[in-house]
Each structure stands twice: as structure tokens, then as C-alpha cells.
Design a protein around this nucleic acid. Structure first.
Length: 496
RNA sequence: CGGGGCGUGGCUCAGCUUGGUAGAGCGCGGGCUUUGGGAGCCUGAGGUCGGAGGUUCAAAUCCUCUCGCCCCGACCA
């Protein structure tokens, strides 16, 4: 009976069905919920709090590297999309388009229908390069106007067919940086600077190790010269793109005719970058760290780092525990501590509930603890319980424990990646390592550099080249498929 | 857009084959007892059975149409 009840409350175990585990977890931990419109989601306070933490950390890093925020409108004239050939090709199929304004009664079905057709349809931004470069064209005259380093926090719309909470929805939140430079070298430096910002954020805040490197021609952003990417590895062995930074060359400057006068009094097209990370990071975070009990949040991104569960209901017990709890409430304020003194729920229920929500540390405080002059501390990532003295500096002990946990989560993910990264020499070995389906970690293999070979591998194995990694030394070899020479190994994986 | 499945209290579902007073568990409200790993008992609220037609004395159940959702294939931060 007890187990039957537990089963109803529990989320699907990872080993049973990883996809269902993920959906269960997101819904049960109240990160998000489905919206009445297919493919869209509501980000609930637990999820949005996480996004705010991410946003604040990244925003600070952007500011430190000289960027300023601005906001461009979400409606884009349809003809703007057509100006950059590859860009249209990449986004045309997934654009949402506004064609009407106003509503009127519809006698056909007794409901409402669009009233006036717009003179010209408006595209809901799938990304903002076009409108931003239209504006940059008006703002840039001379090299003295450069660089322009702007970021915006916004929503974008991509009319996806198959959606998943956080990983792929028709509307999502992100930031998009758009910079304009006088030289190619400076723009490339900008793109790689941001890649490094993203890497630091992923590893130091999310505790998610990432491979960085260039995308192949086939995988790069529509309209980019080069796309740099960050690739994380989920617990089920799939790659997940955590962010991208693009060197756009002069493609958009040419499409929108944005030139500037150089110091030598010549004219040149402006060099550009764009870069972004989205609420998909929340999906990546969940898939890297969380377990069958629920969310596991790295301390640096947890909205509330500590929860205190007072134990005891008899008046004498309460009297004993209450002063300690009040002391904790005050001393642990810097950790945005939650004190859960709801008498209608049992301690066991609360333990499970806060574990589901991923609070990094739980303090249990009951008669036993107070009488022994201690507190019981439970760590979310390992489940480990230990006691700390009540007499000491509790805040300092908590601080230390959180730091250890942040580091341990990163190390664990790093070890997991190492254990799931393999070097293969032949195509047979490659297919063997990959298995028939599902995630199989990162595979490092030689590739001849052609799109044809890349496509063939994808069609035959469903694995794609995640990046040309920049953290491994170049190492000549021969393509696993064609035997043609290769200068370096590339990273293959099945991906989200 | 092709293939498969499902629509019944907030959630998960039973009932439909063989028409006859709408059910269970969870959740929710109230009461009492409980509190160191998802408490127990009592009591209560809550559903025009996705929608529209039809057959019938009678439809959640049978027929027709329709809408919506989920899963699998082609695209993807």
C-alpha cells in the first residue's frame, strides 16, 4: 500500500524511460506546464526563478565585456527576411506570420475571425539579425561609430513541428547579442570572447562541462561564416547544444547595405557577430544533473539554497526547536532560506517535496538535534546526511558545504563525460560504439571534411558532427568512412 | 502532412463488447488523532461522459460527422 502510493507520486525512473522521466520531472517540480496552444509552454515560478538566476549571471558577464542591452521589436517586415539568401533558407519554413489585425464575429461558427488583412505581413522574429542590421545601417557611418556591442533579452518564435518542454518550444526566451565591427579580426575575437563567457557560465554556474568548437558547414547558423558552439552531454548520452556564437562576416552588412568610412577614408562593409543562449539551458541543466527523486540544482543557480524543516509537533518539542529555527531564519537569509513549518505535512513528505524541487541543502532540526547541540544537514546531490554543531558559525558551514557541492557536481559531470567519450578508428567501430539507437556519448573520429560524408553518416547512424573541437590537439589521420586524409578528430554524437 | 492511439470530477483511469439511477484511486475542504523519509480514521465538495446530429421508450455505451490532444516518421536554439 505504501509503495503503491509512492509510485503514484513518484516520477518515472530514468532507467525505465528517460524521455518520460524528463517530462514528469519538469511538470512535477513545477518548472513549467503545457499551454493551451500546442508547442508552447508556461514557465512557472520555479522555472522562471532559475532563468532569472541564469539571466542575471550572464547579464553581468556581458556588461563586464562591454555590452549594453537594448530592445528591438518582435515584428519584422516580411521582406527583411528575404534579404540574406542563406538566412531565408534557414528560417522561412519555421516563421510565424501575422497577416491580420482586429477580430470580428464569424457567422460560420459563432466565434471570432480576423478582420482586416495587413497591407504587408509581419514575421514574428525567429531571431533578430534582419531588423537589427536594418537599424545598424542607420546608425553606422564612420569607423568612429564602431564597434556596436548590443545584447537583448527577448522572446522569439520558431514554428517547430516536434516540441519538448524547454528543449524545443514554439516560443522561447533567450538573449541575442549583435555586434558590429570595423575588422574581421575584431569580429572573430568578439565571437570567441563570448564563446568563452558561455563556457565559463556553463561550467562555473551550471556545473555542466562543455566541449567548444566550430560547427561544420551543414550545421552552422543560416547566414554565418562560422558558428562556434558549446556541446554538453546528457545523462542518457546525447549531445545537447548549450549555446552558439556566430562570426557573420559581412553577410548581413551586404544584405542591408551597411558600410562605414575607414580611418583611411575608404568604404568597407561592417563585420558582424551574433550569439545566444536560451531557456533550453534549463533543459540541459535538468538532463545533466537531476535524478529519480527530482531536480538537482547547482547551488549557484538555486533560487533558494537551503530549506529548514523543523521536526516535532508536541508543544514541548516546538518550544525547544522554535528558537533554533528562528535563529536559522535570520542567519541563513543570504542563502534565501525557506523555513517549512507547515504542520499539516509530515517531515517525510517535506523531504521528498524539497528534493523534488532540487533545493541544494536541507537542514533538519528536531528535538534530537537540539538536545545534542547539532543540526542535521542533507545534501541533495549525494543524499548524504551529516551533522554540524549548533554552537559554531552555521552560515559559514553552509557556505562551505554549498561550495563543495557546486564543485562536486561539476566533477561528477566531468567524470561522466570522460567515461562516455570514446576514440574510434574505423566506421565499424564507430557503429558498434554508437549502437542501434539512443545516446552513446561523444565519439572522436576522423572525417574527410565533406558534407557528403557527414550526411551519409547521419543517414546511416543518426549521429551528427557536434563540433570541430578546439580543446584537443590536432592529430592527422584518415576519415573513418572514405579513408581520405583528416587533420583532426571531430566530435560525433546523437543529439537533442 | 502520412501511420497508430486517446478524449468520462483537478489528475490517473474503470464502465462501452451485451444501451437501463455516472464510479474508483489520488488530489481538494472540514474534524479528530498524528510528525526523524511521501501519516491514519471519519466526513464532505466536485462530472450537461470533447462537441453536433442520428437510432431508441431510454445513449458515456450503437451510427454519422466534427473538434482537440498524445505517440511514431520528414525540419530543428
Amino acid at each position: 500500500m505504501a509503495t503503491a502510493k509512492r509510485d503514484e507520486k513518484a516520477i518515472c525512473p530514468r532507467a525505465e524511460d528517460y524521455a518520460r522521466w524528463y517530462t514528469d520531472l519538469v511538470l512535477r517540480s513545477e518548472l513549467a506546464d503545457y499551454s493551451p496552444v500546442a508547442g508552447c509552454m508556461v514557465i512557472r515560478p520555479n522555472g522562471y526563478g532559475l532563468w532569472e538566476k541564469m539571466r542575471d549571471a550572464l547579464d553581468g558577464m556581458f556588461k563586464e565585456t562591454g555590452h549594453r542591452n537594448a530592445y528591438f521589436p518582435m515584428f519584422i517586415p516580411v521582406e527583411f527576411l528575404a534579404k540574406e539568401a542563406q538566412h531565408v533558407e534557414g528560417f522561412a519554413m519555421e516563421c510565424g506570420v501575422v497577416t491580420h489585425s482586429g477580430l470580428e464575429a464569424d457567422p460560420e461558427n459563432g466565434g471570432l475571425r480576423p478582420k482586416r488583412a495587413l497591407d504587408s505581413p509581419l514575421v514574428l522574429r525567429p531571431t533578430s539579425e534582419t531588423i537589427i542590421w536594418h537599424m545598424y545601417g542607420q546608425w553606422i557611418n564612420s569607423y568612429r561609430d564602431l564597434p556596436i556591442l548590443i545584447n537583448q533579452w527577448a522572446n522569439v518564435v520558431r514554428w517547430e513541428m516536434r516540441t519538448r518542454l524547454f528543449l524545443r518550444t514554439r516560443e522561447f526566451l533567450w538573449q541575442e547579442g549583435h555586434t558590429a565591427h570595423a575588422t574581421a579580426a575584431e569580429a572573430v575575437a568578439e565571437a570567441t570572447t563570448i564563446l568563452e563567457v558561455y563556457r565559463r557560465f556553463a561550467e562555473e554556474y551550471m556545473a555542466v562541462p562543455v566541449l567548444t568548437g566550430l560547427k561544420t558547414e551543414a550545421e552552422k547558423f543560416a547566414g554565418a561564416v562560422d558558428t562556434y558552439t558549446l556541446e554538453a552531454l546528457t545523462q542518457d548520452g546525447r549531445a545537447i547544444q548549450a549555446g552558439t556564437s556566430h562570426y557573420l562576416g559581412q553577410n548581413f552588412a551586404k544584405a542591408f547595405d551597411v558600410t562605414f568610412q575607414t580611418a583611411e577614408n575608404t568604404r568597407d562593409f561592417v563585420y558582424a557577430t551574433s550569439w545566444g543562449v536560451s531557456t533550453r539551458l534549463i533543459g540541459a541543466l535538468v538532463m545533466c544533473h537531476s535524478d529519480d527523486k527530482g531536480l538537482v540544482l547547482p547551488p549557484r543557480l538555486a533560487t533558494n539554497q537551503v530549506v529548514v524543516v523543523p521536526i516535532g509537533r508536541k508543544d514541548e518539542e516546538k518550544a525547544l526547536v522554535a528558537p533554533v529555527v528562528e535563529r536559522l531564519r535570520a542567519e541563513l537569509k543570504p542563502f534565501d532560506v525557506i523555513v517549512d513549518s507547515d504542520d499539516s505535512k509530515s517531515p517525510g513528505f517535506k523531504f521528498a517535496e524539497w528534493e523534488l524541487r532540487g533545493i541544494p541543502l536541507r537542514i533538519e532540526c528536531g528535538r534530537r538535534d537540539v538536545e545534542a547541540g547539532q543540526l542535521t544537514l542533507a545534501r541533495r546531490d549525494t543524499g548524504e546526511k551529516k551533522t554540524i554543531p549548533l554552537a559554531g558559525d552555521v552560515a559559514a558551514a553552509i557556505r562551505g558545504e554549498l561550495d563543495v557541492m557546486q564543485q562536486a557536481m561539476f566533477q561528477r559531470a566531468l567524470d561522466f563525460r570522460a567515461a562516455n567519450t570514446r576514440t574510434v578508428e574505423t566506421y565499424d567501430e564507430f557503429k558498434e560504439a554508437l549502437g542501434p539507437e539512443g545516446g552513446a556519448g561523444f565519439l572522436l573520429a576522423h572525417w574527410d571534411g565533406t558534407t557528403a560524408t557527414e550526411k551519409r553518416i547521419q543517414e546511416e547512424t543518426n549521429a551528427t558532427i557536434r563540433c570541430l573541437p578546439d580543446q584537443f590537439p590536432a592529430e592527422p589521420g584518415r576519415c573513418i568512412v572514405t579513408g581520405e586524409p583528416s587533420a583532426r578528430r571531430v566530435v560525433f554524437a546523437r543529439s537533442y
